[in-house]
């Protein structure tokens, strides 16, 4: 029986989130959902920063989490723009059906 939530629990939770995200990237067949899964992975990293920052009593962890959020937003912006382009020209968002480039 868990009586107290320790830092280890947070780290395990973050690892599980990261795993779910990675599974989503590998298994889902829609570029938008893949992008969502990547966001989950990035936020798992944020959870590690915040949890360990709290554990160490170091405010740097929370600051970095904010920075990572900003970068993730930048990445998502570009991602959505590219997805719009692809959906217009290729008429599909399924990476398996995008097979013009191969050799």
């Amino acid at each position: 029986m868990i009586t107290e939530i320790t830092t280890t629990h947070w780290i395990v939770l973050a690892a599980v989130l990261f795993g779910i995200g990675l599974l989503g990237v590998l298994a889902r067949r829609n570029a938008l959902v893949i992008l969502l899964s990547v966001e989950l992975m990035l936020n798992a990293a944020n959870l590690v920063f915040v949890a360990l920052g709290h554990h160490l009593g170091d405010v740097q962890g929370q600051v970095i989490a904010m920075v990572v959020m900003a970068i993730a937003a930048a990445e998502a912006t570009v991602g959505l723009a590219v997805i719009v382009l692809v959906s217009r020209t290729c008429r599909t968002l399924n990476p398996d059906e995008l097979t013009e480039l191969k050799g």
Binding site: V25, A31, L35, V38, I71, V82, V86, P95, L98
Partner: peptide, 18 residues
């Protein structure tokens, strides 16, 4: 072709940065 390359770069790049 360029759009497809962009999307692939994006997905792999985002996973790598994660």
């Amino acid at each position: 072709q360029a759009h497809e390359a962009g999307l692939k770069f994006l997905i792999f790049g985002a996973v790598a940065s994660a």
